[in-house]
Design a protein around this nucleic acid. Sequence first.
DNA 1: TGGATATATGAGTAATTGCTAATATAGATC
DNA 2: GATCTATATTAGCAATTACTCATATATCCA
Lengths: 106, 106
Amino acid sequence: MTEKERRRCELQAEVLKALAHPIRLAIIQFLENGEKCVCDIVEYVGTSQSNISKHLSLMKGAGILSDRKEGLSVYYELKMPCALKFFGCVRDIMENQLSERSAALQ
Amino acid sequence: MTEKERRRCELQAEVLKALAHPIRLAIIQFLENGEKCVCDIVEYVGTSQSNISKHLSLMKGAGILSDRKEGLSVYYELKMPCALKFFGCVRDIMENQLSERSAALQ
DNA sequence: TGGATATATGAGTAATTGCTAATATAGATC
DNA sequence: GATCTATATTAGCAATTACTCATATATCCA
């Protein structure tokens, strides 16, 4: 494996790490229909504002979200809609997992 | 957000966590062209056999890989080719990141 | 059956991640 | 300028992740 490939995998892992948390996935799905402000996201997800702020900052840093300010509010928007398609694939994997486990138990 | 949605995000996060590591991504790309045995994977990635074994086990547990034994060797195969397409998308995000950072520095 | 080989696992340790509570910062309004 | 509101950040702590080393387990062969 070349050093270039290794480096590319490291960068890709950064992005995937930034996706790999339930709260961040919930935020992304919420943003599927367009940009939202932090307060709406807090309400939708149902956890503390400070926790949400951390997660938003992390995803912005990873290039997954972008933001814009409007008065006191900050609106976040999804920059990688392809993630939503991928989640469909992930869901299939999960369902296969459950099917296989069910079959194994029978 | 409903409890069902929350649960689904948790499960999706499990799969993404299982992907989100440079060595695991390298393994997945190596498996793009078909199943490989552990010793080939060890050689390709260039880290310890025990480390590789841990990563393989984790991905198998998450439903990403499947395996079959042949004598002393164990062959692993990718169960979610859609991940490869998604990596293309992740790469675009990474490149956008680099472009934006370059623009910001100029 | 013993030795060799391939692979998986346990234990210990360090690094990373994620949460909460408190608080700082920024913008708006009076 | 003070107050309020929205959001971001710091610090502390707990949980999780990842690695190495040593070793266990399984398979093959003489």
